[in-house]
Amino acid sequence: MPLNVVILGGTKGIGRALARRLAARGDRVHLLGRDVEDLARCAADLQARMPTPSPVTFSVCDLERPETFAPAVSAAATELGGFDTFVVTAGLFATQPQLEADRAFTLRLLTVNFAHTILLCEHVRSYLLARSGGTLCVFSSVAGDRGRKPVILYGATKAGLTAYLEGLDHKFRAAGLRTICVKPGFVRTGMTEGLPEPPFAADPDQVATTVVRAIDRGTPVVYAPPIWALVMLVIRWLPRAAMRKVGF
């Protein structure tokens, strides 16, 4: 059975790659985003890739405007005739030095990545539970696994998000809500453009492949690429004294 998937963040980066993978295998996709013209171009791209082209729909959802959330969820439900899978890859990033120098952007990032993402998920949770279940797949990050010098602020938003998703999983899995928390490592997208590449850097399509599998299986926590599970295991076990010394 093809999925009926809603994606917020499908215009760029990992979300774009994921939307393509799903469309190419015949899942029906509804795009959410903030720029209608851009969404239309992304929808055309997905349509061309479907096994049998059929219109890909889209509607507005802006993580900086929570008033768009409820209308976006109901528009997506209407267009798809009900959806069973909701993916959020949308998010903001800036380096720690950039954030330390810019309070206004720090507030935007904290709000978008944490408060508003969770608020949107609450809308989706109610929707999915009301139709007796479905998948909520949200992109957190390895940056949320431990407080670390280069990602203090960004990592804090992802740590909060990870905790929220874990709580949902504990409480609602039995009721049919499959929560998936994706923790990518370094991925070559516009978000990381210009940053020095650490080991295990991946391409968006690699991450997309891992995430599609996780959606199919309902895996609650996925590291992508999977090697990051091991890397973070080690980092989580490093003593505080060591974390004060190292640069990562």
Binding site: K12, R41, C42, A44, D45, Q47, A48, R49, P53, G190
Partner: peptide, 10 residues
């Protein structure tokens, strides 16, 4: 990164 198909006539 600018790699979208904008139109395709099957």
């Amino acid at each position: 990164l600018a790699d979208r198909i904008l139109q395709f006539n099957p």
